[in-house]
Design a binder for these strands. Structure first.
Length: 113
DNA sequence: TGCTTGACAGAAG
DNA sequence: CCTTCTGCCAAGC
């Protein structure tokens, strides 16, 4: 039995560039007052197992600061460790946080069709 | 080449 | 709810 995945398991340099561009494009389309998750972005970009790469891309790609990357949280609604300003930015656009400090995902999760 | 480190996800205790 | 562990995979050392 061949255990083939429905997506490639490793990226070529060119695929990595395509992935990065897709991630940045998706992030740029997140509406005000909404958030999405690393895993969701990775899946939309065509690499479902690369959620960690999404975070890496946003953190280290020059120019990502000009995108609404504060609207990216983990699937539980937790904000990025060591970036307290993220919560501030989200609250400014009306995103509600629960008592446990997580984003209320039921109200603010954005999932494009 | 091999081990460690994460802006993750999910499960376990 | 919180911490820790495992699986994941590119990057750094």
């Amino acid at each position: 039995m061949s255990a083939l995945k429905d997506y490639p398991d490793k990226m070529t340099a060119e695929e990595a560039r395509t992935f990065r561009d897709a991630v940045l494009d998706i992030v740029s389309h997140i509406p005000r007052g909404m958030v999405t998750t690393y895993g969701n972005i990775a899946a939309l970009a065509g690499w479902p197992s690369h959620s960690r790469m999404v975070g890496r891309t946003l953190r280290y790609t020059p120019g990502a600061e000009s995108l609404p990357c504060h609207r990216v949280v983990n699937i539980e609604g937790r904000t990025a460790p060591g970036w307290s300003r993220q919560r501030m930015l989200l609250e400014e656009e009306g995103v509600a946080f629960k008592a446990n400090g997580h984003v209320d995902m039921l109200r603010h999760l954005w999932e494009p069709q």
